[in-house]
Design a protein around this nucleic acid. Sequence first.
RNA 1: GUGGGUGUAGCUCAGUUGGCAGAGCACCGGGUUGUGGCCCCGGUUGUCGUGGGUUCAAUUCCCAUCACUCACC
Length: 371
Amino acid sequence: MFRFEVIARSTGSRARAGVMQTAHGRVATPVFMPVGTLGSVKSLTPEELDAVGAQIILGNTYHLYLRPGCEVIDAFGGLHRFMHWEGPILTDSGGFQVFSLARLARVEPEGVTFQSHVDGSSHRLTPEGAIAIQRRLNSDIMMCLDQCVPYPADIEQLRRAEATSFEWARRCRDAWRSGGPSHQALFGIVQGGMDRGLRAAAAERLGALDFSGYALGGLSVGEPQALMLDTAELSLPLLPDEKPKYVMGVGTPEDLVELVARGADMFDCVLPTRNARNGQLFTSRGTLTISNACYRQDTAPPEEGCGCYTCRHYSRAYLRHLFLSRELLAYRLNTLHNLHYFLNLLHAMRQAIRADDFEGFKKRFREAREI
RNA sequence: GUGGGUGUAGCUCAGUUGGCAGAGCACCGGGUUGUGGCCCCGGUUGUCGUGGGUUCAAUUCCCAUCACUCACC
């Protein structure tokens, strides 16, 4: 059911364009996936997401399992009908959240025991359990349970987390296969921190497990951008060329351009949506902090020439007013603009790769920010 | 009219046994990378109600006065 095909490659870089076929539709890559952790891309309806160009969105196992709970989503046959989004959905396994949100996470070979950040209740998440939950959510792409390590970390800590993540990946794959042929895809996640030897070994041995696709985890966890890019540059070519490659949790527009150049196909990041709610707008010339006093009487849209709903109808002065007044509309309009910017950026990259002009695209992208 | 209370940053209020005036919020910048509309980091702001007195020094002690406020008549 799940298929991926590379349809164009850039000659001056590793950038490539492809098509991913999922149970709920096709996705053109490279792609940016808006994050809808709790079954909603915050402040937007699915119709608006569609209109702004979203092809696939993210949901989160950890969050949805804790609230509203699988039995609620079961009644709808999965997340799609529950949230009224009939396009593709990728669910994160919850590994990252257990370590970033939950209290008292304890890792054992069997799985991870943690306390809910919602009500303090105790839970255990195992690789098999993570797959079982994602089956019930009925996502198009499931992710393996893994262990993410902050930066910096010592080599022993990295080694242990990578070993655990690999073992869990193997068990996730077995659990996935044990149910017979599935319309759901499963991606493996490469860990190993910023240690080159560990990363390379992790990428190679995970690549042998024949997942539907592969992800780089544990990036953008506090390391300098150059180190993140170096780590991705080292790891991406070591993963099977015919499979989609997903860099998790990244990143800024600059990060995305640099990672596409290094062969990445998929991204997700909270930056466009979260920063929208915090008043930061992304434009081709850089970021714009809408609360700044210089926009108080500015009648121009956030970005001149931008085709998004927000820029076609509203001024910086009005958006500033809405944001400072904490009006709900501020979150919606800012989110619409930022997602439009990110999705449009990826659209432009796909076109450039297909026309084999990715280098030209990069040049124009950089020049716009230098003005 | 009588008695009491309160006047300190834009707002709500600390404080000083007399020694360069503080907090929270607001405001102004910055941050945010597999999401808690959260949070974090910097910064600006004062005739200390007014006028006198005592003192080397008063926002602080004393006197007067004004404003607001409460109780009683």
